[in-house]
């Protein structure tokens, strides 16, 4: 098609293989956070955290397809409003609106770094108390 080769074709799913997913889900915290977002079956009221189940989902064709779609739809900027529902900072939202995947991922990384720094230094402080 007539799209510019560089902007449109970065597909994160290309690197999300079994080995990669197993490495990421070796962290129990990660498994715990991803578990509630997995597809749920009729008989399940609540999911119990289970690394195998997270791995199975992340390497399933359905998830891989969704991730590829996410990446290929990103440059259009149309994911902006959808991404805004997920408590991102202004940089990330701005990047999503303008359709810049690289800037979006950089912003997520920055937020994660900031959060980790504040987690360790301000652990004792109750959150959101510095209102004026």
């Amino acid at each position: 098609s007539g799209m510019q080769p560089n902007s449109a074709s970065v597909d994160l799913a290309a690197g999300v293989n079994t080995e990669f997913v197993k490495r990421i889900t070796a962290s129990p915290t990660t498994v715990q956070k991803l578990t509630p977002l997995l597809p749920r079956f009729g008989y399940e009221t609540e999911k119990t955290a289970n690394q195998d189940e997270v791995v199975d989902t992340l390497i399933s064709p359905a998830f891989q397809h969704a991730l590829s779609s996410f990446c290929s739809a990103f440059p259009s900027g149309q994911l902006g409003p959808l991404v805004e529902q997920f408590e991102f900072g202004t940089d990330a939202v701005q990047a999503a609106r303008s359709g810049n995947l690289e800037a979006f991922l950089n912003a997520i990384q920055k937020e994660a770094d900031g959060k980790r720094a504040s987690d360790t230094t301000e652990e004792q402080k109750p959150e959101d108390m510095n209102v004026d």
Partner: peptide
């Protein structure tokens, strides 16, 4: 899958794997 994708990206960032994954994907596409 959108909530899962978003959380997955955040988890990758926590583990410092997000930007390496992007770089690799970019290389592949180029």
């Amino acid at each position: 899958y959108l909530p899962l994708i978003v959380q997955f990206l955040k988890e990758l960032a926590q583990q410092k794997q997000l930007l390496p994954l992007y770089e690799k994907a970019k290389e592949k596409s180029q």
